[in-house]
């Protein structure tokens, strides 16, 4: 334990990680039940946080209940560590926990994310905390919780399949590009949060612990490690992820999710990795490799 962490929780009037211990216990109990029923949304007594609802309060409460003084925290929004809300949340945890932070996916023990799963594969024991705006995958079909609760209870997910099929009839394909619903452990239909469907396959059989927090809607759910995550599809319209013709303009990756950057007002654009740590690491590796080659060839010459 870092000595300053102990000081933080005793001296500034706020408890370590902001939440009081009773609230943490309540959330911790919810997390254990969430892991025991993969994909099922556990209602929890979500509290108001000092960040606005819709801005990651669910993720923050989950992280606050999980995090300890020895953790190393990474916070990303849209895959990037430097986006405003990621910076704000990271600063929050530095203030209330004095916890070590990192931009490196590999070094982090807890990663809180909004809208992306990191490109670097996660390991056993790592905890990925998703911020969830709307935990109910059936909400757009049926706004009433009294109804959706029954649909989950009896695994009546036909309406969801019908909705996706209407896309096929109308557009010739499933027109869902993010927040793409998946069936977890063969039983519960789950919103993966608004990650691009590109990231859905990363959830499947992932060695890490994936926790989801929806603060405003007061729901917690989870995908345990090594758990099946099946994105909904049809035999004649199988699930597929986004692909790009080119590669990242900065690191050359052909396997990562790319963001479009508009570079002038004449329609010029380029594509770069949305995962900044992944991209920076690859650029640094390429630079190091090039330096090594230059050095060798310099010596040879």
């Amino acid at each position: 334990m870092s000595p300053t962490a102990a000081l933080v929780h005793k001296d500034d009037g706020y408890n370590f990680a902001y939440l009081d211990e009773q609230t943490k216990r309540m959330i911790r109990r919810s997390l254990l039940k969430a892991l025991s029923i993969p994909g099922y949304q556990v209602p929890f007594g979500g509290r108001e946080m000092p960040l606005a609802y819709g801005w990651g309060t669910g993720g923050i409460q989950v992280t606050a209940s999980v995090i300890g003084p020895d953790d190393v925290l990474k916070v990303i929004d849209q895959g990037a560590d430097d986006t405003t809300n990621a910076v704000s949340i990271r600063r929050f945890f530095q203030t209330v926990c004095d916890v070590a932070v990192t931009e490196s996916t590999a070094e982090a023990t807890v990663v809180q994310t909004r809208h992306r799963v990191p490109e670097t594969p996660l390991k056993e024991g790592q905890v990925l905390v998703y911020q969830v705006p709307q935990p109910e995958p059936l909400k757009k079909i049926e706004p009433r919780e009294t109804e959706t609760r029954k649909m989950h209870a009896y695994a009546e997910y036909g309406a969801m399949q019908v909705t996706l099929y209407e896309d096929v009839a109308h557009f010739g394909r499933i027109a869902k590009t993010y927040d793409y619903p998946a069936v977890i452990n063969g039983r519960h239909l789950m919103s993966p949060s608004p990650i691009p469907k590109f990231d859905n396959p990363k959830m499947e059989m992932n060695p890490a612990i994936q926790l989801f927090g929806a603060g405003r809607e007061k729901r917690i759910y989870a995908v345990p490690p090594y758990t099946s995550v099946r994105s909904l599809d049809f035999d004649d319209h199988p699930f597929e992820v986004q692909t790009w013709k080119g590669s990242c303009a900065l690191c050359g990756s052909t396997t990562s999710y790319l963001d479009e950057v508009i570079t002038d007002d004449r329609g010029s654009r380029m594509f770069v990795c949305s995962d900044t740590d992944f991209c920076n690491t690859r650029q640094a590796e390429a630079a190091a490799a090039k330096a090594a080659v230059d050095k060798v060839s310099g010596e040879e010459a």
Binding site: E21, L32, G68, I209
Partner: peptide, 20 residues
């Protein structure tokens, strides 16, 4: 002895136990 950090450490172990 330390209600905050002891509880956190034990919970993490429980989380890992239920997850794996």
């Amino acid at each position: 002895a330390d209600p905050v950090f002891d509880a956190q450490a034990v919970f993490r172990a429980a989380l890992v136990a239920i997850a794996y």
